[in-house]
Design a protein around this nucleic acid. Structure first.
Lengths: 220, 220
DNA sequence: GTTTGAATCAAACGATCGTTTGAGAATACG
DNA sequence: CGTATTCTCAAACGATCGTTTGATTCAAAC
């Protein structure tokens, strides 16, 4: 076997590190969470991170790759179900874009932390991470833009990307649960996110349907 | 006098520290930017931070307070010009909410960094900072919500706050210039932000005007 | 049973962090 | 002027950071 000899534990050392890192990066940031905190939370030796991942930066990359691949797949699968069909509504495509992102934080307790990690990555404004995201998401975004263009024939390509950018902003914000609106203690988190998704989809649909205005020079 | 004896310099030590800290916090985060970087950029001795501000945390608070007070004032002033009047449009109120935030980054080179700092503060998800922001912005948000309620009589109060939250998310995202769409090199940053403001306002107006739906069972 | 290689561990490495110190320079005030 | 106060500065403090080392433990290969 190529797998770890120590695999008798519930989860492998690598997975425990990834999980702990995800949670701690979400709450303390990449620079704020130390490898000592991470390894302690994972009940793993300090040296394990450098042994399994090489460095802290590589660990951060792995945290991203693991979840992004999943989100990538889910979004494209959801889009494939509605793309190109005659009775597809704008809300259906928005749902395919928004729901997998919000779902990611419901199905898995660990993934809930990741959405905050993702939002933080945007805030970090790190050029390396930005490039990494753009390379891994460029084709996804392009596919969605194409489908939106089909459903909104009145809008220019530039305009579509502008509006998709706004939707992504609101989605990122919602995923990270940044909102001013505090979830009431008697409301389940699932329900809260479901409500957030519904509001977001309806709001975004209205914004996207808005007829285009001749804007002198389209910049972005 | 209570002012600094060394005041013969172009700007005081405190102000130079604040400016440098703002810029470095924006690019490297609060934990990522060290006081040695900050003091070096400000051409100031390392000990000056603890002498003038007490600690790094207090410095962070000061960076926030300085700009937030200004944004606070501008937003309320802009709102006062249109609130309660007969011919006020939804776009006018949105403009009062959105433009001061985006303007902050155009009038002053230093303030441009702050909008990223602000966005990062949301991402940090720090409970202390969140409380600080909510205490300093609660009344502003309430005033805007009241005006929106007047212009959108068909919407419940809860619904208003939900949608304002979405607008804030997209605005935060836009302020930080997170967008996937890169600004073309031949486009001035002022024009870029102006275009961003226009898109955001029109998008948000459409989303806000969207008639309310009985929330019970929604989407899909 | 011996060998082999992967995985874990305690301990230490040098670097950098935020903060403190104490002496000295610059200004204010009598 | 002399004294007091404010500010600056180089240097060092202890703590913590990411990383490396070398010995040890474990499971499988032969």
């Amino acid at each position: 076997m190529t797998s770890a000899p120590y695999a008798s534990r519930e989860r492998s050392t690598k997975e425990r590190i990834l999980g702990a890192a995800e949670a701690l990066f979400a709450t303390h940031g990449f620079a704020g969470a130390s490898l000592r905190q991470v390894t302690a939370a994972a009940r793993v030796n300090l040296a394990a991170v450098n042994y399994h991942f090489g460095s802290k930066d590589k660990l951060i990359e792995e945290v991203f790759r693991r979840r992004l691949d999943e989100l990538n797949t889910r979004r494209l699968a959801a889009l494939a179900k509605v793309a190109g069909q005659e009775d597809t509504s704008l809300e259906d495509v928005l749902d395919a874009y928004i729901r997998p992102a919000l779902d990611l934080s419901r199905n898995d307790g660990g993934a809930a932390a990741f959405v905050r990690v993702l939002a933080r990555a945007y805030a970090e404004h790190n050029e390396t991470l930005r490039k990494f995201l753009s390379e891994n998401y460029g084709h996804v975004l392009r596919q969605f833009a194409g489908e939106f263009a089909r459903l909104l024939p009145g809008l220019a390509k530039d305009e579509i990307y502008w509006r998709l950018d706004i939707v992504t902003g609101a989605l990122t914000y919602a995923m990270a649960d940044f909102g001013i609106i505090q979830r009431k203690s008697d409301v389940d988190e699932r329900d809260h996110r479901e409500t957030a998704a519904e509001h977001l989809i309806r709001f975004a649909a209205a914004g996207l349907r808005n007829p285009s205005v001749s804007t002198s020079t389209a910049t972005r």
